[in-house]
Amino acid sequence: MLDKYLLFFTHDILANSTVIVTLLPIFIIIYRKAYVDPTFRLLLIYLIIKLVLDVMMFHFATFRINNLMLYNISVVVRYTLLSGMFLYKFENPLLKKIIIPLSIAFIIFSSWDIWISNPNIAHINEHRIVKYATTLEALLMILWTLIYFYELIRSLKIPSLLTFPFFWVCSGLLVYYSSLIFISPALNYSMRWETMFAIGYLDRVLYMFDIIIMLLFSLGTWVFSARFYARH
């Protein structure tokens, strides 16, 4: 069994490395005690869920089982938890108010998207990636990040952004979702048993930026100091 895992891992090192890289920010969050901040606590929860889902997807992929249902679930979890971080960071009360209803709306929309993207939902091998939810998720996350950057500039509360942990988290989110926004609509057509549209090398971009976002999360968490947490 271990041989199969190793064989599958070496078959596509870049794609499978994303599973291992997730361990880095998890370890740093725990090591730097960044979980004292509710934002990073939420990030830690997301990373742990992501790791579990990634490991399950890796296992399914090793045994040639369609794992796209897990990917669809990860889209919902990813948006809900990552957008939840802004709930603690936004200063505008109106923005704080709309984050939770939008997350609920996104869950409903994604569920509907899963339903319409999978006409044969009971058949596991026929599962496909959602058509619109990933694009909507990318749009919303880019919007939240840009609004947060705007608030950050206006408030002038952080003297040095390079040592501000959430700046790196937001940078990671912005870069990751910018890479995802144009590729995600094509994923539904490319990730099928009978490929209708092969995106080819473009799927590498997603894996690369999946690693980059984890590195930026790690960097943000590394500059986090539990001692000075109250100041931020």
Partner: peptide, 20 residues
């Protein structure tokens, strides 16, 4: 898709640099 993605990435890096 590639050009769109590159444009978006350039925008993202520009925004980050601008904010800094």
């Amino acid at each position: 898709i590639l050009i769109g993605t590159l444009a978006m990435l350039m925008m993202a890096f520009f925004v980050i640099a601008f904010v800094l």
